[in-house]
Design a protein around this nucleic acid. Structure first.
Lengths: 137, 137
DNA sequence: ATGCATTTGTCCGTATGTATA
DNA sequence: GTATACATACGGACAAATGCA
């Protein structure tokens, strides 16, 4: 698979698709480096901006994290703990605001679960750490 | 409020914060343009890179959408419909893959709710359109 | 139906700062 | 301490997509 600069899909989306596929297929395991910006730029014959936007997109999907100076690696997804949904509760999923992300120390690309319990109490849960359950009975 | 290039918080984060506040306060209503890259660049005396990064950040939070050549507008959030969680079901929230996002026609920054019903059937729901409920009884 | 104007997409160059192996 | 690699930020240039006259 190679990147087609003449395609109607943006180059950075194509690169993100390539890397995402390698991650989801297991070719790139958790913790594995996806390559430096320079490497990716040269390997695929595309510009710096495109590489950075591709990486940024994957970060926003929660697939990779970038640290200095180790570069970008496949993100290790934490174990999910089970959270039981109480009767009468409602849940919405959304992305955190910038402030929320910083105060909750969430990686980019991690959604939030907002659980509204009867009585009005609201729980805000990191979406990558929990699995909601409605028990059998 | 104005942008301080000497602050320790990056210029693009400051701009994103400014725009986010205008959206959340209702100053910028759904569908309203947030301004072109050039406008924002000139108004705040910052580079186009910083503007693009700010917009990109807001996109990843699901607050705005960008199309060419209409620019970036405040995203219209759909009405949420209620979805009842069946007994024995479990739910996880995650970001969609690029392919999922495109086939489900989701905007950037919209999480997915993956409902696993007893029996193994899996439902994939757009996170901005549903509110999960566990009924009182 | 053709073309123009607008706006983002993409490329490139440069520079400084910062975290960490 | 040094080298590495990204983060931030500025600048310029051309390409491509789309709404509209």
């Amino acid at each position: 698979m190679t990147i087609d600069p003449y395609s109607h899909t943006p180059v950075y989306v194509q690169l993100a698709d390539l890397i995402r596929e390698r991650i989801e297929s297991g070719d790139l395991a958790a913790g594995a480096p996806v390559g430096t910006e320079l490497q990716l730029s040269q390997e695929h014959g595309i510009g710096r901006d495109a590489v950075r936007m591709a990486i940024s997109l994957l970060r926003s999907e929660g697939l990779v994290t970038t640290t200095r100076p180790m570069g970008t690696r496949v993100r290790e997804v934490p174990q999910r703990r089970q959270v039981e949904l109480r009767p009468g509760a409602t849940v919405v999923a959304r992305m955190p605001s910038g402030k929320e992300r910083r105060t909750m120390q969430l990686d980019e690309g991690v959604p939030i679960l907002e659980v509204r319990n009867p009585g009005g109490e609201v729980e805000v849960l990191p979406g990558d750490e929990v699995e909601l359950t409605r028990p059998e009975r």
